[in-house]
Design a binder for these strands. Structure first.
Lengths: 208, 208
DNA sequence: TACTTGACGAGACTCTTAGTCTCGGCAATG
DNA sequence: CATTGCCGAGACTAAGAGTCTCGTCAAGTA
């Protein structure tokens, strides 16, 4: 996500003052902290910079836009809190994966962060690309579970892993963005069961 | 969606000049037209007013926000182009419903309109409520198909219609917002088959 | 016909916020 | 100890949503 003069390191040895790592951490942490607050305090570049004790230019030196900061804060946590699952069965893998995913995304702070990132992704094409890339990694992780199950011969032939993946993340994002129903671990487990059933069997009369 | 002095009509007979219906239509049509253009012309209140040959105040007299105009333009078309389906079977109803829905939402202009509405819904709580209310109507229409099937005894006991509905609309919105895969009628049909399979049977070992 | 009411187009105005630019200062390298 | 480049601070620009006001126009009422 970093831009700025980072690529000059390839051309010649670095001189001058180095990046302040404490400032980087403060910025990312403050973003999550501000978003997590109950008062709907506006999360603007100015409030982030002020709360992090940092100049605005320090933010723009390392990130191309406000959305990019939000995305990195989000990515950091998502990559952390969702461990790969390998229980040996599709049902087990799927339930573990979706439980962890829904647990994280169901937290109020994380949900708000996800919403903001998705908004920025719609507003700025560069952010759209970056977000798409992050989400592609998440989809790939989930698709892996179905593909392993297919290799084991667990799933019916003709099963479309991409559709199954979109059904899972679709429920997640739809609920986060619309807010008509909560993301609970119970619903994650129920969804896991439904998708397992879908992958393992076919509708009556359908080939395969 | 209208506000302004509309509620005064209840208190006393209307006097003075009436609302210009041609202006209303021009505004809603111009919104769709501007959004549909290939050049990513910004769809701002000023450009809408100018293109519709209307003063900004005329917009704000009848809609509370820009998002509300977008939402009404979207609602108008959605309520129109998705007929209720009643083929007698869940598979048939579901496929007809999802085909019509994906066909409409898959059009470039409509997809962009949906994206913008969803963004506004995230940015403004009042818009969030209005959007939620529209989406609730759409969910209710789809849920009706599953409930009718349940009355016919077509679905397995323990089937959760709300989860099925969220899977369907989840795929739609997820694909629209992320843009990694198109909304085709073929995928609508495939999804309809998958959800039918899910509702009709249960995973092995699960009760019901 | 004359009066009243409220919508109309036009456009100036305020406010918020993202992002840029410039400053004097400071830390790492050589 | 000179150069380089990051630092915090804050002024500045630009875009866009929403408000306010003005003179005008149309639909009823007397």
């Amino acid at each position: 996500m970093q831009t700025g003069s980072g690529d000059q390191a390839a051309r010649r040895p670095h001189t001058g003052r180095r990046r302040n790592e404490a400032a980087r951490r403060a910025i990312l942490d403050v973003v999550v902290d501000l978003i997590g607050r109950d008062d709907d305090a506006p999360v603007t570049i100015d409030t982030i910079a002020a709360a992090a004790g940092v100049g605005k230019q320090t933010i723009y030196r390392w990130w191309p836009s406000k959305g990019a900061v939000l995305l990195e804060a989000m990515t950091e946590r998502a990559d952390l809190d969702i461990p790969p699952s390998d229980t040996g069965t599709l049902a087990g893998d799927l339930e573990a994966f979706l439980r962890a995913t829904f647990r994280l995304a169901g937290q109020a702070t994380m949900a708000r962060l996800l919403r903001k990132v998705m908004v920025e992704a719609q507003l700025d094409p560069q952010m759209g690309e970056a977000t798409r890339s992050f989400l592609a990694r998440r989809r790939s992780a989930l698709r892996g579970l179905f593909e392993r199950a297919a290799e084991r011969g667990e799933t019916a032939p003709g099963t479309d892993p991409d559709l199954l993946v979109d059904q899972a993340f679709g429920v997640l994002w739809y609920r986060i963005l619309v807010g008509h129903a909560p993301l609970t671990e119970a619903s994650a487990a129920e969804l896991a069961g439904a998708l397992t059933a879908q992958a393992v069997r076919r509708a009556p009369g359908e080939p395969g």
